Each structure stands twice: as C-alpha cells, then as structure tokens.
Deep mutational scan, measured.
Amino acid sequence: KSEISQVFEIALKRNLPVNFEVARESGPPHMKNFVTKVSVGEFVGEGEGKSKKISKKNAAIAVLEEL
C-alpha cells in the first residue's frame, strides 16, 4: 500500500480529518520544487519533492511517523 492510502486508512479508523495542500512552489518552471503539508487531526507532516506527487508522498511518510 502507498503511504498516502495508509494515512487515509489510519485517519478513517481514528475518525480524524485529512487535508493535503501544496504549501510552496519554488524554482524555475523547468525545475520546480514543491512542499506539501498534510494534517491528520492535530498531527502535521511536511514533504518536499521535485513534483507534487513526490512531495505528497514525503508528507504522508512524515505524518505516518507521528501517527
């Protein structure tokens, strides 16, 4: 299972809201860097990556460590 689906499963079991959002985009158009924030109830994680998908996955990994 992907880290993102694990976050949603845990949140569902604990009845917590999940929110993913792109917090920052930086860099030139051909080499963008994304920072995504995820919140699961009061737990927050942040991930960085060269694409929105990678930064979302890294944010999920960060919040899984707290859950």
Rank of each mutant, 00 (worst) to 15 (best):
L64D: 04
E46Q: 15
P28I: 07
E3D: 07
F20W: 15
G45N: 03
L12N: 15
K1L: 07
N33K: 14
N19L: 12
P17A: 11
E42W: 07
E21I: 09
H30P: 09
L64Y: 02
N33Q: 13
N58A: 10
E42A: 14
L16M: 11
A60P: 02
E48R: 15
G27E: 06
K32S: 10
E46A: 10
G49F: 00
I4E: 05
A60K: 02
E66R: 15
S2H: 04
K37T: 06
V7A: 01
K52T: 04
S51C: 07
N15L: 04
V7H: 01
F8T: 07
K32Q: 11
K13V: 09
A60T: 05
K50Y: 09
A59S: 03
Q6N: 04
V63M: 08
L12I: 13
V22Q: 13
E46P: 00
V38F: 06
F20M: 07
V35T: 13
G45I: 05
L16T: 03
G49M: 02
P29I: 09
K52F: 05
M31I: 11
E25I: 10
E66N: 14
K32F: 04
V7F: 01
E42G: 14
K56G: 03
A11G: 15
E65N: 12
R24N: 09
Q6V: 06
E42F: 06
E25D: 14
V40M: 07
K37Q: 08
V44G: 06
K13A: 13
K37Y: 02
M31N: 15
E65Q: 13
A60E: 03
V40S: 02
K1Q: 09
M31A: 15
G47W: 00
E9W: 04
L67H: 07
A23K: 12
T36Y: 05
K50N: 14
V7G: 03
V63L: 10
L16I: 09
K56N: 06
E46S: 12
E9Y: 07
E46M: 14
E3W: 07
E42S: 14
K52H: 04
A59L: 01
E21M: 09
G47D: 02
N15G: 14
V18K: 03
G45P: 00
E48I: 15
E42Q: 13
K13L: 09
V18G: 02
V18Y: 01
A62G: 07
N19D: 08
L67F: 06
A11K: 03
L16A: 05
K56C: 04
E66T: 13
F34M: 04
G45V: 06
H30E: 13
F20E: 04
V63Q: 03
S55V: 01
R24Y: 08
V44R: 12
E21S: 12
H30F: 07
F20V: 10
A60S: 07
K52S: 06
G27H: 07
E66A: 15
L64Q: 05
I61Q: 10
N15D: 10
V22I: 14
A23L: 14
A62Y: 01
P28A: 10
E9T: 09
V44Q: 12
A23N: 13
K53F: 10
E25M: 14
S2Y: 02
L67A: 04
L64I: 03
K50Q: 13
S51R: 08
V44T: 13
E65T: 12
E25T: 14
R24T: 12
L12D: 13
S39V: 13
R24D: 10
G27I: 08
E66G: 11
R14P: 03
L64K: 05
N58F: 05
V7T: 02
S5P: 04
K50H: 13
G47F: 00
V44K: 13
F43M: 08
G47M: 00
V44L: 10
L12R: 15
I54Q: 12
S2T: 08
N19E: 12
K1W: 04
I54M: 12
E3N: 06
F34W: 15
L64F: 00
E9R: 08
A11P: 00
A59I: 00
L64C: 09
G41D: 01
S55Y: 00
A60D: 03
S55E: 02
V38L: 12
R14N: 09
S55P: 02
G47T: 00
H30Y: 09
A60N: 01
E42H: 14
H30D: 15
Q6E: 13
K1D: 08
N19Y: 10
N15M: 07
S39D: 04
N15E: 08
M31V: 11
V35N: 06
E42D: 10
A62M: 08
K32I: 10
Q6D: 05
Q6I: 06
V18R: 02
K32W: 05
K53E: 13
A60G: 02
A62D: 09
R14S: 07
F34P: 05
K53W: 09
N15Y: 03
T36D: 03
E48W: 14
I54W: 03
N15F: 04
V38H: 03
S55N: 01
P29L: 08
E65Y: 09
R14V: 03
V63A: 08
A23C: 12
F8C: 08
E9F: 04
I61V: 11
E46H: 14
R24V: 11
M31G: 14
E65V: 03
F20D: 03
S51M: 03
E3A: 13
G47A: 06
K37C: 08
K56V: 07
S39G: 04
E66F: 15
V40W: 00
T36N: 02
K1T: 10
N58R: 11
R24M: 11
S55F: 00
